[in-house]
């Protein structure tokens, strides 16, 4: 665990948060600064390339990957409010660039310093209570890449349970995918929708007033389903909940 007074971290905000959910980025910055982290935002950043990589366009993905590797080369830590984009950078960049003499080592270096937001707080900062308060029942959906590529099972729950007034309610089949899956959601909308239906059913069953996750993408899917069904449950990023009451 590092001495927080010295910690500097670069924010990779993700393209989805940048364009659609800037409030998530604001919350991330707020929470990190609240812990004494000096946050910077490298302006050349765009997308990590995951949509291209997942569609099989590895060369195009690599081109975006190289931009990220260059842009964040000087950073001490890189914090990403997405389990999915963080996996791309931590797990898949080293695979994409494994035979690249220049970017291979850069990918390895980035892999070691990139953290998903909740993991950064708990594992690097050693924080369990960020001093937030939120009245109400909250269900947590563990997003797949966070859970299975980054193996973060406990961190988000630890942080949630540290929030004053918050009641963490269990979500049935929580580990089951919400059906987003990136381009999968529009390439196979029928299957994606059927998976989402189950997730929405379980959210409703949980009795939560808010469902949270560490990925804006899964939340976009879940929120889209809740709203279409007219269910009055909010879907908010973990960072937003940790920024509540501030």
């Amino acid at each position: 665990m590092a001495d927080s007074s010295q910690i500097r971290a670069s924010l990779f905000v993700t393209c989805l948060v940048d364009q659609l959910f800037p409030e998530v980025g604001e919350a991330v910055v707020g929470v990190l600064r609240g812990q004494g982290v000096r946050v910077d935002f490298p302006p050349g950043q765009t997308c990590c390339g995951q949509p291209l990589f997942n569609s099989g366009f590895r060369k195009d993905a690599a081109e975006l990957g190289r931009r990220v590797l260059d842009e964040f080369e000087q950073s001490a830590y890189v914090v990403v409010p997405s389990g999915s984009c963080a996996s791309m950078m931590k797990v898949f960049y080293p695979e994409i660039f494994r035979d690249d003499p220049v970017y291979g080592p850069k990918a390895k270096a980035l892999s070691e310093k990139v953290y998903e937001f909740s993991q950064f707080l708990v594992k690097v900062m050693g924080v369990e209570d960020v001093g937030a308060s939120h009245e109400g029942k909250v269900a947590y959906h563990p997003s797949c890449h966070l859970l299975r590529e980054l193996e973060a099972k406990e961190e988000p729950v630890t942080l949630l349970e540290g929030v004053e007034g918050l009641e963490h309610v269990p979500l049935e089949d929580a580990d089951t995918c919400c059906g987003f899956g990136g381009t999968f959601s529009v390439k196979y909308p029928g299957i994606s929708q059927a998976m989402l239906d189950d997730k929405v059913d379980n959210v409703v069953k949980s009795g939560a007033s808010t469902v949270t996750a560490c990925d804006a993408s899964c939340l976009m899917q879940i929120r889209g389903g809740l709203r279409r069904r007219g269910v009055g449950v909010e879907a908010r990023h973990l960072a937003e909940i940790l920024w509540d009451g501030k």
Partner: peptide
């Protein structure tokens, strides 16, 4: 407009935020 139409058939879609995060930053 596809591919968005395939999303909105069954789900609501978020609109682009009035200001991007990089602008807010």
């Amino acid at each position: 407009i596809p591919p968005f139409s395939r999303w909105t058939r069954t789900r609501d879609m978020p609109a682009l935020a009035p200001k991007s995060f990089r602008q807010v930053w």
